[in-house]
């Protein structure tokens, strides 16, 4: 991964409001060319809204989205349509994103038809090639979506997203509806395709272990903002933000020997209502560090900005150095990379 080239995607101060609720709040994030950026967070943290706002499915309230040097929020409909050819989305539920009345071949050829690419024969060949690429027999082209299992249907959805040879893929929880044994098949497929086709990918998921397997960098979202952004190994090895640390410590580890000795940082309380976000740091109502420090006022009065801690890590917390110190101290009880 090189930083030198211009980012493929540059999100600047993005805000998306639904009525009074700011689902995404003044968020900035860049995706480098060829990299996979994992976006994690709990439900309601704004990950899916971000992905939809990037593709202009939901129009942002304010902010800019730059794709390969072009601004999307202010772009015309015609221009957007043309650009969408180069950025495609894979959704969580493959069954509801595939029209049940169309054969697989028609489903895969549809994007080509919409963009007027090729003739019948060429499209046929392309469909067969894509099916083979995602591990399906081209003969399944005459079948309908309901005849496929969940994992196979997700392969079809991936083939459909890739048939236009996009540069950017936004995958929104692409494996969370699948069984574990199938999940691994799809993760491995995405890893293979990303390298083979040199894709840049925004990979959205709530499962931190899944994100770790596929991402180069990871952004953690909480209540519409990025609270930590770091290289994968850094984020999982030395998480800085108290929320990241709590999130990692809550992930169950499939090893009873580890689970017995594991020090859990169980968050009390629940996510605040996004319509009534507290002033200052939105995490402070559940923050163990805030409580341990005797509830300092600055957390309630000042919104912590996302500041760099190291060349490959930034976090939004007033007391992040205290948190990292605590992390280093607890490393034995915590999660190691």
């Amino acid at each position: 991964m090189t930083d030198t080239s211009e980012p493929i995607l540059d999100i600047r101060n993005l805000t998306v409001r639904f009525g009074k609720v700011a689902a995404v709040n003044d968020m900035s994030l860049t995706l480098r060319r060829g990299e996979t950026l994992g976006l994690v967070g709990e439900s309601g943290s704004g990950k899916s809204t971000t992905s939809r706002a990037v593709l202009q499915i939901n129009r942002p309230t304010s902010g800019e989205v730059w794709f390969d040097g072009e601004e999307l929020v202010s772009a015309s409909r015609t221009r957007l349509k043309a650009l969408r050819q180069r950025m495609q989305m894979v959704f969580q539920d493959p069954r509801s994103s595939l029209d049940p009345r169309m054969t697989v071949e028609a489903l895969l050829a549809e994007p080509l038809v919409i963009f007027g690419i090729g003739n019948r024969t060429l499209r046929r060949a392309k469909v067969a090639e894509m099916l083979r690429l995602v591990g399906l027999d081209p003969a399944v082209g005459s079948r309908y979506p309901h005849e496929f299992s969940g994992g196979q249907a997700q392969r079809i959805a991936i083939a459909r997203a890739l048939i236009l040879e996009p540069e950017l893929i936004i995958a929104d929880e692409p494996v969370s509806a699948l069984d574990v044994s199938i999940q691994a098949q799809i993760i491995n497929l995405l890893v293979k395709l990303r390298t083979q086709l040199n894709l840049s990918m925004l990979f959205i998921a709530h499962d931190l272990a899944v994100v770790r397997h596929i991402s180069d960098r990871v952004a953690v979202m909480y209540m519409g903002r990025v609270v930590e952004l770091a290289d994968r190994d850094r984020l999982y090895g030395a998480p800085a933000h108290p929320y990241t640390r709590a999130l990692l410590s809550a992930v169950p580890v499939p090893d009873p020997a580890v689970e017995v000795h594991r020090k859990r940082e169980i968050l009390t309380g629940e996510l605040p209502s996004p319509g009534r976000l507290p002033y200052g740091c939105a995490f402070r109502s559940r923050c163990p560090l805030h409580a341990a420090l005797g509830r300092p006022e600055v957390c309630a009065n000042v919104l912590p900005p996302l500041v760099p801690l190291a060349p490959n890590q930034s976090a939004a917390c007033h007391f992040v150095s205290d948190a990292s110190a605590a992390a280093a101290r607890d490393q034995r009880g915590g999660v190691s990379a």
Binding site: I182, A184, H213, Y236, P254
Partner: peptide, 17 residues
């Protein structure tokens, strides 16, 4: 083998069934 876990070596690929 197929479960992604925070405890596995990070570059070890998952082995699906």
């Amino acid at each position: 083998r197929s479960i992604p876990s925070l405890e596995r070596p990070v570059d070890e690929p998952l082995v699906p069934i």
